[in-house]
C-alpha cells in the first residue's frame, strides 16, 4: 500500500510519524467528543480545537515529508495550515452565536452564567 513512500532521513521520518500520530489522536478525540457529549456547548469544544490541531498535525507532517524529500518547502501547506487556524475560531464563534440564538438565549442576559 505504501510502497511508493520515498526514503527519508531518520529524523524526518520520526518527526513525520510523530506529527501524524499526534494529529490523528487529536482529530479522533475531537470527533469522539462531538459524538459523545450531551449538550451543544460542550460538543463545540472538541472539534473546534482538537480537529484543528489534528489537521494541523497532518499538514505539518506533510510539510516535513516533502521538505525532506525535495529539499524544498511547498507554500500551499503553510497557507492551508494558517488558513485553518485563523478560520476555526471564526466558525466556532458564529456557530455558538447561532445556537444561542436558536435556543432563545440572549447572550446579554445577566443570568447566563448561572445556567449550565
Amino acid at each position: 500500500m505504501n510502497g511508493t513512500l520515498a526514503a527519508l532521513p531518520a529524523w524526518a521520518d520520526a518527526l513525520c510519524a510523530f506529527l501524524l500520530v499526534a494529529g490523528a489522536f487529536f482529530a479522533f478525540v475531537g470527533s469522539l467528543g462531538l459524538a459523545k457529549l450531551s449538550s451543544f456547548e460542550k460538543r463545540l469544544h472538541g472539534p473546534t480545537k482538537a480537529a484543528t490541531l489534528g489537521v494541523g498535525g497532518a499538514l505539518l507532517a506533510s510539510i516535513v515529508y516533502f521538505a525532506a524529500r525535495d529539499d524544498a518547502v511547498y507554500g500551499h501547506e503553510f497557507l492551508v495550515t494558517l488558513f485553518v487556524f485563523v478560520t476555526a475560531p471564526i466558525s466556532a464563534h458564529l456557530m455558538i452565536k447561532s445556537a444561542l440564538h436558536l435556543a432563545g438565549r440572549d447572550p446579554r442576559a445577566p443570568d447566563i452564567e448561572a445556567r449550565r
Binding site: G30, R43, L44, A51, V55, S91, S98
Partner: peptide, 14 residues
C-alpha cells in the same frame, strides 16, 4: 441544526 453544521465543519476538516 447547529449540531449538523458543526458536524459538517468537522467533516470537511477531517
Amino acid at each position: 441544526l447547529p449540531d449538523r453544521i458543526l458536524a459538517l465543519d468537522t467533516m470537511y476538516v477531517n
